[in-house]
């Protein structure tokens, strides 16, 4: 918690510096993906993916349907292997530690890496408050006061506090779709993750609700590293510092968002970003 507070202070800088930092070519590497392959049964969904993801950036994964975007982010928190018959090989190095190392407990990894899903999936029997507190309780935190503080802070972080502060005991399912998705973001933030994985978080939402989530991405990446899968190229252009283009399970191109959109190296990327397929 201290960490998040101090990080917030540090990051309350002017937009001028933010822009400078964003354009600065090298930041600390947060995740490095090395030779990742993934399968569903005998079908290979990812082929030798290599990628460096830098701290406090938003990275967008783009590509046509079925190219493996979801599979790739699910490999980053070891969720992929929970699908029956699915397996993954390779290294995903988080702060110098390979999360696929045999000594690593996949449960612990998920506490450091939050995930937001394509369709909002709050726990339907729980109140707004309990939804956000669910992860804390799962991890054995019992201190009521601490839980309250973190719930409030997380709802604020997800831009939902003002809307729900007077109805924390109401069921989470009573919220609108966009609010539910921000509730799920708050639920993930409550774990104080270092990385937030978002799989098409706005695809089930209307434009207004989507733009709220996009604003959130901007705000949140000051404190954590965001990886967002999106179908929507305008969205990628708006929220992402880096963009990766995938095709048929391969990483075709990765770079600054601006460069990917305006001056891609690969012809395939060029055709995709100009809307010729996908």
């Amino acid at each position: 918690m201290e960490d998040i507070l101090s990080a917030k202070e540090i990051s309350s800088d002017t937009s001028e510096t933010t822009r400078r930092i964003r354009e600065e070519p090298r930041r600390r590497s947060k995740v490095s993906i090395k030779g990742v392959n993934a399968w569903f049964g005998s079908k290979q969904a990812l082929k030798n993916i290599n990628l460096e993801i830098e701290e406090n950036t938003a990275t967008a994964f783009m590509g046509p349907s079925g190219c493996g975007k979801t599979t790739l982010i699910r490999c980053l928190n070891r969720m992929h292997e929970m699908t029956p018959g699915a397996k993954a090989k390779g290294q995903v190095i988080l702060d110098g530690i390979d999360i696929y190392d045999k000594s690593i407990d996949p449960v612990i990894i998920k506490r450091r890496i939050g995930m937001v899903f394509q369709k909002p999936n709050p726990f339907p029997t729980m109140s707004i408050f309990d939804n956000v507190a669910a992860g804390l309780k799962l991890n054995g935190i019992k201190d009521k006061k601490l839980i309250r503080e973190i719930v409030e802070e997380s709802l604020e972080g997800a831009g939902l506090w003002e809307e729900v502060k007077n109805e924390l005991d109401k069921p989470g399912m009573g919220l609108s779709g966009g609010q539910q998705q921000r509730l799920c973001i708050a639920r993930a933030l409550a774990m104080q993750p270092e990385i937030l994985l978002m799989d098409e978080p706005t695809s089930a939402l209307d434009p207004l609700a989507s733009s709220k989530i996009e604003e959130l991405v901007h705000k949140l990446k000051k404190d954590l590293t965001i990886i967002i899968v999106t179908h929507n190229m305008q969205q990628a252009a708006r929220v992402a510092d880096r963009a990766a283009f995938m095709y048929l399970g391969e990483m075709i191109e990765y770079g600054f968002t601006k460069q990917i959109f305006q001056n891609p190296e690969q012809e395939l990327t060029e055709r995709f970003v100009s809307g010729k397929f996908g």
């Binding site: 998920k110 999936n121 992860g135 799962l138 991890n139 639920r187 993930a188």
Partner: peptide
């Protein structure tokens, strides 16, 4: 739904 299980797993359950 599996999304419910994954919601819990993603919180480190």
């Amino acid at each position: 739904p599996n999304s419910q299980r994954e919601a819990a797993y993603s919180l480190g359950a």
